[in-house]
């Protein structure tokens, strides 16, 4: 199987300059790989650094040390040292991030939010609309909401728009941070199925799941990041 992510010697600490310059070590010497078709679930207590690690993989947090090779269009790219426009290109074509919250953009409808990744990758407007509608329906978002901007939606509705956007055209690598937090059981099952389908189609998954039942259905492998805490 193709290695999609290769993490080498990664460390992260935060220096809080405006709180007396205190240094907050999170983890050190993190090494692992993820192959296409795998689902690696990050484990560890709250505050262990699971979200920080996921954000580092996305190029959102900068590690204190180490490298992260992402297989992008068949070539390795170190997301840590890549220039901004390369990081953005890697995100557009290779890295998907599913966060707990939808970042609402004023005046953009739910349907357009979900269509967008398809259009960005060159789908025709008709195909994009059709797939987006199917995905919103599958996540049980009432059709009357599709043409509205999600600013006024409930947390669970926004979350489903977010998931629809992320899974309408799964990326080769999917980074997932507690996507089911505000969902009911039926929609949780949809998310589990979407992740399984993405994996079957060859995506490499790295995820954090609060819910133990979800975790066990999704994981092909676990990584307890408490092990990387500095002594």
């Amino acid at each position: 199987m193709t290695t999609m992510i290769q993490v080498e010697n990664v460390a992260k600490s935060f220096t809080l300059h405006n709180q007396g310059g205190v240094n907050l070590p999170v983890f050190d010497e993190v090494n692992f790989e993820v192959a296409a078709g795998e689902a690696l679930v990050l484990a560890g207590a709250s505050g262990a650094g699971k979200s920080s690690l996921l954000r580092i993989l996305y190029g959102n947090y900068r590690p204190t040390r180490g490298s992260i090779r992402i297989t992008h269009a068949g070539r390795p790219v170190d997301i840590v040292s890549a220039v901004p426009r390369t990081v953005l290109d890697v995100r557009r074509r290779t890295l998907g991030f599913v966060s707990q919250f939808l970042r609402v953009i004023p005046r953009v409808s739910a349907l357009d939010i979900v269509r967008d990744p398809l259009l960005a990758r060159g789908a025709t407007p008709e195909t994009a609309t059709e797939k987006a509608r199917a995905m919103l329906a599958r996540l049980n978002l009432p059709e009357r909401l599709w043409s509205l901007a999600p600013a006024t939606f409930s947390g669970g509705e926004q979350q489903r728009v977010n998931i629809a956007r992320s899974f309408v055209d799964p990326s080769p690598i999917m980074l997932i941070d507690e996507p089911t937090a505000s969902l009911d059981a039926a929609n949780r099952d949809v998310v589990v199925a979407l992740i399984a389908e993405a994996r079957a189609a060859g995506s490499a998954i790295v995820g954090i799941f609060h819910d133990e039942a979800v975790r066990e259905k999704v994981a092909t492998r676990y990584l307890d990041i408490t092990a990387f805490r500095k002594a």
């Binding site: 809080l16 405006n18 954000r55 190029g59 959102n60 901004p84 990081v87 953005l88």
Partner: peptide
């Protein structure tokens, strides 16, 4: 300087941390 979301979410300089907080 850097990618916008990096600078805003994981600011390194004392002044940027002050601005974002």
């Amino acid at each position: 300087q850097g990618l916008t979301d990096q600078v805003l979410d994981d600011p390194h300089h004392a002044y940027t941390q002050l601005l974002t907080s």
